[in-house]
């Protein structure tokens, strides 16, 4: 009974994500598209919470909705405000690739176990072992957290290091944090924009 009802909330969230995805593609106003990508990651993080993957939701909220939106805005300020109209005839090759890839994914769907199947590979074999042993081994109530932060803790630490190094490198390349001379009232961003042109 309980599982059934939260499942409907999942459907509602996924439907909203679908609508947002369509709208991002159709939107000509780039600012609205940036806002919608932020909303998309907010929605997907809420969906992750309802799937009980709290850590993934944390990451998605912090990176997708927080940093990602601001970085996309920064990129958008260096370009135009509106996307150019493109002629619809130019994208047949891309459409073909998408149709083939999507068809392959849909072809693979019937092989997947039914949602909530007790005999799926995740619910039998080694997955069951993790579910049983996590309270004794780690005593973290959330199994996803336990796997992410303890069973594969070194992997997560390596990922964090790589992401941190990449962020530092990007910041150094973009010149963020560079000390500049105090000029008059002219904004720093304006000077940057003029450098670009």
């Amino acid at each position: 009974m309980e599982q059934d009802l939260t499942q409907y909330l999942d459907y509602v969230l996924i439907a909203m994500m679908f609508a947002v995805g369509i709208a991002v593609v159709r939107m000509r106003n780039l600012f609205a598209a940036v806002m919608l990508t932020g909303v998309y990651s907010l929605l997907s993080a809420a969906w992750f919470v309802s799937l009980d993957a709290v850590d993934v939701a944390f990451t998605e909220a912090a990176v997708g909705a927080g940093i990602g939106t601001v970085l996309m805005l920064a990129a958008m300020l260096l370009t135009a405000r509106e996307a150019k109209e493109t002629s619809p005839g130019r994208h047949w090759a891309a459409l073909g690739v998408v149709v083939v890839a999507g068809g392959a994914l849909l072809f693979a769907v019937p092989d997947m176990p039914v949602y909530g199947d007790a005999h799926s590979p995740a619910n039998s074999g080694v997955g069951l072992d993790y579910l049983n042993e996590t309270p004794n081994d780690i005593a973290v109530p959330n199994v996803v957290t336990a796997v992410l932060a303890s069973y594969r803790g070194y992997d997560t630490m390596g990922e964090t290091t790589v992401v941190f190094a990449a962020a530092v490198a990007v910041m150094l390349m973009l010149g963020m944090g560079r000390r500049r001379r105090r000029t008059g009232g002219n904004g720093a961003g304006k000077a940057k924009v003029e450098d670009q042109t």
Partner: peptide, 25 residues
């Protein structure tokens, strides 16, 4: 916990967006 994080990120992101459009930086 996630809800609290959302509340913080939401506030900071709104401030960042408005600041960006006012000051370009």
């Amino acid at each position: 916990d996630i809800a609290l994080l959302y509340a913080l990120i939401n506030f900071v992101a709104t401030i960042a967006i408005l600041k960006f459009f006012r000051y370009r930086s």
